[in-house]
Nucleic acid binder design. Structure first.
Lengths: 283, 283
DNA sequence: AGACCTTACGGCCGGCGTAACAATA
DNA sequence: TATTGTTACGCCGGCCGTAAGGTCT
């Protein structure tokens, strides 16, 4: 019976040209390879090599055999990868989100509801989210709008509202509300990881410059020690309260409040029903 | 390291549904299969089966793995078949002929010139011969006409002429020559294995019936014991002489004499050059 | 009782490495 | 002399079959 280890050795010989070299690369002794190839030849039933006293080369049969062997090995690797990927997918729920805040609750719920499952999450733009959902990369995605595709199921997943956090000394600090347009031209501190929110200040405040911070901690330090305005959302306000020394002013633009929707494919719905129910109950 | 024998066992389990049955089919003991599958599972690193106390079934991983395994095994078989076919082809000269007579000399020559090679020959119609030459099924074919394809090499390979062998009592027995049309309507004995010659009497003698014999011996017996005319060719005449009690009368139709051509592909020519030379010398 | 899967035990085949040899560049 | 391939020898891991045990129909 021909075996995969022989095909690996054959492929190694094809790659490295001599038995000695191939044996070295395979971390086996060279006589072992000699014997293996002799056995392989006998199992094929046809000569695969042209031998001189101290040189061994493929003949035409061997060339062909080596080509086939590589394909078989490749396919075997595909098998391993494919099955492992399937297994991994079977106990992983992958959540994609347009923004970091709603994913927190989602991961929390999923972790609670699907004990033993791996919950993976990542933030990206809306288009790749929808594509990823279709391709199976995500089982669930969170969008800032209601999808209108018939193949998708969705449930409301909370809202998020944006505020300005102004230093008390700011000339707008006393206002009950502000349009972003009014703040246009003022430089602001901005956290990098805010998902789709990026586009809003860029559109409404084209004359402002935004000092983007990747580190949460760095942003907080700057907020505390500078007079630059920044954004906060109601979600962080609820948990952390307003930044010290800052006055929170509502943003009057309608885009400053979004409703999130948790979305999945129709045929995936049974698998994530429990997660969706957690949100439906809240309504 | 995962091995092919394990994949065969996996495929057998997929086919037969229980370890016991699969073990029986594979002619190994059932505990062996239990162990093999456990090992395979550990090598995949993921569970492949759903086990109850006395039942083992595939889970989704196992389903996928079994599908892959079948493909790998199939491709492995393709490898064996392909390499063996290549080897076989490398020391086989396959000759196709439109008629049995010229192939005799060809096989004789090929056997003498290519010691150690396998010479295989078969007779069929001209169209499949040409196709078979192009597809690599034949290295050499023998046609009753000169090919006009630029991609083909050829050499004359003798002639064959057809005669009537009439009983002495036949009213045409004294003639120096006969057109086939003159014999139309007379029933004749005919050997089955005459290749392209079939078409000639069918065309020229549409009112005759032909008593086709598959066995050479049966034909000879019938020729000896009946008064039905039959055909003979100059080639058999030279070796065996005319059938006893028969008068040989030349056929005057031009189609009764053909020149054979031995044909090969241009790029195959080097491999069969020696064989072609044998005929060129005779010219 | 019969079918099925698993575990335990011991035998043995076969693949492995070491060593020694032959041939070539 | 260094490199390469082959043969000989003995070790030992691992695969195998037998036997025994447990569960379900």
């Amino acid at each position: 019976m021909i075996e995969l280890y022989q095909l690996e050795q054959l492929a190694a010989f094809a790659q490295y040209g001599t038995l000695s070299r191939a044996a070295e690369e395979l971390h086996i002794s060279q006589p072992t390879l000699t014997r293996s190839m002799q056995k392989l030849e006998s199992e094929f039933g046809v000569p695969l090599f042209h031998r001189t006293k101290n040189r061994m080369e493929f003949n035409e049969n061997g060339m062909l055999a080596a080509e086939y062997a590589k394909k078989v090995l490749e396919q075997t690797q595909n098998m391993l990868d494919g099955v492992r990927a399937l297994d991994r997918a079977s106990h992983t729920i992958s959540i994609g989100s347009c923004a970091p805040m709603p994913v927190l609750t989602a991961v929390q719920n999923a972790t609670r509801l699907y004990a033993g499952m791996t919950i993976s999450s990542e933030c990206t733009d809306c288009e790749p989210l929808v594509e990823g959902l279709t391709s199976g990369l995500y089982q669930v995605i969170i969008l800032p709008y209601q999808p209108d595709d018939k193949e998708l199921c969705f449930v409301e997943a909370g809202t998020e509202t944006l505020y300005f956090a102004l230093p008390s000394s700011h000339h707008f600090a006393g206002r009950d509300g502000l349009y972003m347009k009014e703040m246009d031209g003022e430089n602001m501190l901005l956290y990098a990881d805010i998902g789709f929110w990026h586009s809003l200040p860029e559109q409404k405040m084209p004359h402002s410059r935004f000092l983007v911070q990747n580190e949460r901690f760095a942003l907080e330090e700057l907020v505390a020690s500078s007079v630059l305005p920044c954004f906060v959302s109601d979600i962080t306000l609820k948990t952390d309260g307003p930044p010290p020394g800052r006055t929170v002013v509502p943003i009057l633009d309608s885009e400053a409040k979004v409703t999130y929707y948790m979305v999945c494919l129709k045929n995936t719905f049974p698998k994530v029903k429990k997660l969706f129910s957690a949100y439906a109950e809240n309504l």
